[in-house]
Design a protein around this nucleic acid. Structure first.
Length: 617
RNA sequence: GGGGCGGUAGCUCAAUUGGUUAGAGUACCGGACUGUCGAUCCGGUGGUUGCGGGUUCGAGUCCCGUCCGCCUCGCCA
């Protein structure tokens, strides 16, 4: 075999006159009969090969070159020269070409179902996933793989320099059925028992702190058996971190440094000091705990004003949870969104769509009013205009509305109205073209001061907003320890020592200072409805560990896949995972998951209850 | 589990109100061609319209079911 001397993408004028050997795939061929051009591709790029009988190519070589097709794998030897036919500015190697004197066909290809060409329209994703090896040859996929590789390297280097220890934790783990649904692994040696795959190595990393590791780092696979989304897969990768002898500040500083290093190294982007925003402020201004601050369009609370209108829907909403304090999830509110220039762009059809959108989040609909210009100053038009007319001046100044604006309202209990209008805000931003394109804005944000607990809507039980090992914020500890577990309002108001990093409206990391005090941990379990026995049964190892001298500790986990998505400018997580899964968790290339023989099931003491539905094979 | 969009040649798509033999580009095969770079020109092969059922004189098109892909709600401590 003609072993290569260079990579295809590296040929430059400096190589002119040299004899080189290249290996790669035929990216395209242009056959002029007595003259043949081949673009040869490897991971590094393309080089043009020329087969010319007047320039060292005997008839046998021309015949062989004549048979080359896209995606054949070849090795060539030849001489580098300045291009005779003029430069191709589209290629990095476009000033030179290789005049081939020897060709070895290493592997003919079957006719590929599609060509790995970024310029062409991509085939449907099903086909790309089935023939992933072809899709991965596309330059864009190669770039994504390289970016991901860079992330691994920068991560290890940064945290190594910061004194973190890379530790592997078990993938065969214990089932702890709170939180996400788990993947189970039946066990051969202990009949009737199962491992679970970890949703995250949370408890191991805490125990590493008790074990004196001081600072822990792992790039680890996590598993959650939940339905995927564009930015979510059932198996995904976290950069998992934990630090001892710290409070919130030290963790945040270290992690901010990492983000700065990462974006600097990979994209050359300077990350300014990150803004911090409390959870409540985020919910008030943006209606979501991961605000996209690349555009304004802030939400306003018009409850007081709305209470003075005769609009029945507002009144009904404001009657909800009247006795509850402000910001309580069940207290009725009226939220408004001023859309500059919306009067013209947001047609009736579009605003009707907004009502459908918010109904999906449990709200009744969107009330609309347009602000129009006129001789006698601004006037209100359409929708709820007549109800607002009596408080018009106050309304206009409260929301800062100007002629040409549309104001959208959502009225409901605080939790419902806030979520609905937060989602609406993002939709409106897209519709109004307010979202900057990729690379134009990098809005990093710490979101802090989350509530410790929230009520599960279905079961009515308290659940930990982050996870049950998150500590209360330092100034909240005594309040929490003394709080009456029956006092809903008090429990809902306890603030945690958690923190998330949000980038352009997407959560890229989340963490917290942990509970290192067994008394606090027990109270959390109690509140979550875990009896002392249950807690001991599930987490005895943790409670025990905490009782043997646990240092104060805290950490965070970055969603590595999402980080790479941001760094690559894609909205599809499958673009940054070499072998991703579909919406029902299949790998279309290997056809996993698959059935297994009865014998194999018997070995692990499993019997399947599944059988094909009636009428199917 | 719910909602939406999609599935027609290897691939990307088209096909009028349900109406003749389901077309085009590309890939592939054959031929021509000495400077292309999405080469060009000529010719050709290629179809279970995802699958199953139904309505109809007639179904790619309408109806029912089902599978698969994508987006999304729920879910994701």
């Amino acid at each position: 075999m003609l072993i290569r001397t260079h990579m295809c993408g590296h040929a430059r004028e400096g190589h002119v006159g040299q004899t080189v050997r290249l290996n790669g795939w035929v990216n395209s061929y242009r056959d002029h009969g007595r003259l043949i051009f081949i673009d040869l591709r490897d991971r590094s790029g393309l080089t043009q090969l020329v087969f010319d009988p007047d320039d060292g190519a005997p008839a046998g070589l021309m015949d062989a070159a004549d048979k080359l097709r896209n995606e054949d794998v070849i090795a060539v030897e030849g001489r580098v020269r300045v291009r005779v036919g003029g430069e191709n500015p589209k290629l990095a190697t476009g000033r030179v070409e290789v005049v081939v004197t020897a060709l070895e066909v290493l592997n003919k290809t079957a006719n590929p179902p599609f060509l790995p060409d970024d310029g062409a329209e991509l085939p449907n994703e099903e086909l790309r996933l089935r023939h992933r090896y072809l899709d991965l040859r596309r330059p864009r996929m190669q770039q994504a793989l390289q970016t991901r590789h860079r992330v691994y390297q920068v991560t290890r280097r940064y945290f190594d320099a910061q004194g973190f220890l890379e530790v592997e934790t078990p993938v065969l783990y214990k089932s702890t059925p709170e939180g996400a649904r788990e993947f189970l692994v039946p066990v051969r040696n202990v009949p009737g028992t199962f491992y679970a795959l970890p949703q995250s190595p949370q408890l191991f990393k805490q125990i590493m702190m008790v074990g004196g590791a001081d600072r822990y780092m792992q790039i680890c696979r996590c598993f959650r058996d939940e339905d995927p989304r564009a930015d979510r897969q059932p198996e995904f990768t976290q950069i998992d971190l934990e630090m001892s002898f710290v409070r919130r500040e030290q963790v945040m500083e270290t992690m901010e440094g990492f983000v700065r290093e990462l974006f600097g190294q990979v994209l050359g982007v300077q990350v300014p000091p990150m803004l911090r925003m409390g959870y409540r402020e985020a919910m008030e201004r943006y209606g979501i705990d991961r605000p996209d601050t690349r555009y304004g369009l802030e939400i306003q609370d018009l409850s007081e004003l709305a209470a003075r209108t005769e609009f029945a829907i507002f009144r009904a909403a404001l009657d909800k949870g009247k006795d509850r304090p402000r910001f309580n999830s069940k207290r009725g509110v009226v939220k408004a969104l001023r859309v500059p220039g919306g009067a013209e762009r947001l047609t009736r059809k579009i605003t009707d769509g907004y009502s459908d959108l918010v109904r999906g989040f449990g709200a009744g609909g969107v009330a609309v009013v347009k602000v129009l210009g006129g001789e006698g100053g601004p006037r209100l038009d359409t929708g709820v205009a007549k109800f607002l007319e009596p408080v018009k001046a106050e309304f206009l100044s409260a929301v800062g509305a100007e002629p040409g604006d549309t104001v959208l309202f959502v009225a409901d209990a605080y939790a419902v109205a806030t979520k609905a209008i937060g989602e609406l805000r993002q939709r409106v931003a897209r519709d109004m073209g307010l979202v900057p394109e990729w690379g134009k804005a990098w809005n990093f944000l710490w979101v802090v001061d989350f509530p410790m607990f929230e009520k599960n809507k279905e079961t009515g039980k308290w659940v930990a907003m982050h996870h049950p090992f998150t500590a209360p914020r330092d100034d909240q500890r005594d309040l929490f320890v003394r709080a009456d577990l029956q006092d809903e309002v008090a429990i809902e108001s306890v603030v945690s020592a958690g923190y998330d990093i949000v980038l352009n409206g997407s959560e890229i990391a989340g963490g917290s200072v942990r509970i290192h005090d067994p008394a606090v941990q027990s109270k959390v379990f109690q509140l979550l409805g875990l009896s002392a026995e249950q807690a001991r049964e599930k987490f005895s190892f943790l409670l025990e560990a905490l009782s043997f001298g646990a240092p104060p500790h805290g950490g965070i986990a970055f969603g590595l896949d999402r980080l790479v998505m941001h760094l690559c400018g894609t909205e599809n997580i499958r673009d940054v995972i070499a072998f991703p899964k579909t919406q029902i968790g299949q790998d279309l290339m290997t056809r996993a998951p698959s059935q297994v023989p009865e014998k194999q099931l018997a070995e692990v003491h499993i019997k399947s209850t599944w059988s094909p539905p009636e009428g199917q094979r």
